[in-house]
């Protein structure tokens, strides 16, 4: 997928301004403060929002795991089967061990379980999987599950993930940092330093390297 010169307007404000990007294989992580245009970017890629200018060339089979969704009184298995696509649902249901959940009413599941079902759906349906805040509302065990499976799958699938959890940087192959609708950094996780994050989030950020794993904290 290639994006060139993208400009997106929502109402009166220009949310995305001259955004250009090419995505690599593996895990592409988009970071940025609230309102930097991450969700708008994802929605424009899938065709929900029409851009003002620019071009998006998508060849891959897209799927989406949303941050917000409605929970109808439908069985979890029907949620997975909803829509027009055929996916490798069984493979991923087994991988995440959610067989007991399938016959239950989706609206009665915990928010973590609901997220898992939608992540499984997205993994099964697409080759380029877009995930909007996949770790929010999940406990540390479920977060580990998702991060591990995404890492395991990055040979076969391509990922485009937004996150507020800066630690996901540790697993990313390509990091994109957005600010006010523009790309302010694109590249390796090593290049994401304290100066960059402090200016983007407008708050002092400290980067701590421990055992080859980076943590971030404000101070």
């Amino acid at each position: 997928m290639i994006i060139k010169g993208l400009k997106v307007k929502l109402g009166k404000s220009l949310i995305i301004n001259d955004f250009s990007l090419s995505f690599t294989k593996g895990i592409n992580l988009i970071l940025g403060p609230n309102g930097s245009g991450k969700t708008t970017l994802l929605r424009t890629i899938i065709g929900m929002i029409k851009p003002l200018e620019g071009e998006i060339k998508v060849e891959e089979n897209l799927s989406f795991a949303p941050a917000e969704f409605y929970s109808p009184n439908i069985k979890a298995k029907d949620v997975i089967l909803a829509g027009k696509k055929k996916g490798e649902y069984e493979k991923f249901v087994k991988m995440f061990n959610v067989n007991e959940l399938l016959d239950r009413d989706f609206s009665t599941l915990s928010s973590g379980e609901k997220r898992m079902i939608l992540v499984i759906k997205a993994l099964a349906e697409g080759d380029l999987i877009i995930m909007d805040e996949p770790l929010s509302n999940l406990d540390i065990a479920n977060r580990k599950k998702i991060i591990e499976s995404i890492s395991k799958l990055k040979e076969e699938k391509q990922f485009l993930i937004t996150s507020h959890e800066l630690e996901v940087i540790n697993f990313a192959d390509n990091v994109i940092v957005m600010r006010k609708g523009k790309v302010v950094y694109q590249g390796d996780k090593e290049g994401v330093n304290e100066e960059l994050l402090s200016s983007v989030y407008e708050v002092p950020v400290k980067k701590i390297n421990y055992d080859g794993y980076v943590f971030f904290r404000t101070y």
Partner: peptide, 19 residues
């Protein structure tokens, strides 16, 4: 019916199904 189920859950996922 399957399309309607999907629209009910998420508009965003619907777009990826060309709905």
């Amino acid at each position: 019916s399957r399309a309607l189920d999907l629209v009910s859950i998420s508009d965003e996922i619907s777009y990826t199904h060309k709905i």
